[in-house]
Design a protein around this nucleic acid. Structure first.
Lengths: 186, 186
DNA sequence: TACAAGGTGTACTGATCTGTACATGTTGTC
DNA sequence: GACAACATGTACAGATCAGTACACCTTGTA
């Protein structure tokens, strides 16, 4: 099955934006690296911003599917899964292609909260917090909502530090901290 | 006392880069907003990158001085000061001009770990971890180094979430999480 | 008065940016 | 075979990017 050019473009642009950044990636670079003509790109997306938003939607989908699947592989109960998320996070940091989180970087380049790209990043993180909250509720933990917010803070901090200081320790550190926070809510 | 044009440039460029981003701020915009001529800028700094590095050095100085002072105002013992850092962090989030952390944003725009700007950001965070570690040691806590790394993760995550989701809750959440982690090391 | 240091204004180079115009080629379906 | 949908190449507009050239002005000091 051959994916449509549109899908191909979004998939490839995702990789390039993730690797190189948004402002630093021009449309000409996308043409050069994907082999897709600029005319086609602008047929599918009216602006570069629209293309970026499409890559973020895809990334959100990928990220949450991959993590949900991996967490389900790693553990069976809601409580164990909540903790296992932070193992999966550590595994991600080990990936050779790991370069921080696309949404954190997007919000760094598009800082205005009202900007659609910033808003998409905020929404992605809200969904992640919601995921934590559902697991915490299912595990019968106290203050599931507050715990979810605290775990989100941990996850984001770990991503930033893994990117800045390299992967060493970070996976273990964030897992330990997460377990400590979760245990206080038992 | 009149500061030198060089200092004036670095101070103003810092504000603009912080507010608008690095790639998004052209040298022509700096000329327009500071009133300093481009010729003068390039007399003081060979490249835009050199200017950015100078703003990061200033920011590092400001950040650590301000926080150290505020933390000393808020508490007297090492243990209390370690906790008080997260109160000071919450105060920062309330600042109308708060727009995440300049170093996180710098590492988002300059992703390569070998890039001087990325390296400067990494160093800034290492100094912050060191600050935590010294306080933890002075407080006689267990595993001061590990605790410092976990607290750094918390601080960075809180900054990211305060930027993405707004200030609500974040200050209290991160303080509660930090206290929980610190108390497990007592 | 002379000089040097620092600052200025303007106009420019050559590259790159987003986005468009326009004519052409390919492919699947009726 | 005809048509529509989708893709292509090329060339361009107009703005902006980092950085430079060059002639001039201001000010403190000797």
């Amino acid at each position: 099955m051959v994916a449509s050019k549109r899908d191909e473009l979004v998939h490839e642009a995702l990789q390039i934006f993730y690797r190189e950044g948004f402002h630093a990636t021009g449309m000409d670079k996308l043409v050069a690296e994907t082999g897709i003509s600029k005319t086609s790109m602008y047929k599918h997306f009216r602006t570069k911003e629209d293309l970026i938003l499409a890559t973020l939607r895809l990334r959100d989908e990928q990220f949450r599917n991959n993590f949900a699947r991996r967490v389900e592989e790693l553990a069976d109960t809601p409580l164990e899964r909540l903790k296992a998320f932070f193992d999966a996070l550590g595994e991600w940091f080990q990936d050779d292609n790991f370069k921080s989180c696309m949404f954190i970087k997007a919000s760094s380049e598009y800082q205005d909260a009202k900007h659609p790209i910033h808003a998409a990043a905020a929404e992605h993180k809200r969904l992640l917090a919601h995921y934590f909250e559902e697991l915490a509720k299912a595990a019968g933990l106290n203050d599931a909502e507050g715990l979810a917010r605290r775990l989100l803070i941990l996850a984001e901090g770990a991503i930033v530090i893994a990117h800045l200081h390299g992967v060493e320790n970070v996976g273990n550190d964030v897992k330990a901290a997460a377990v400590a926070l979760i245990d206080t809510a038992c």
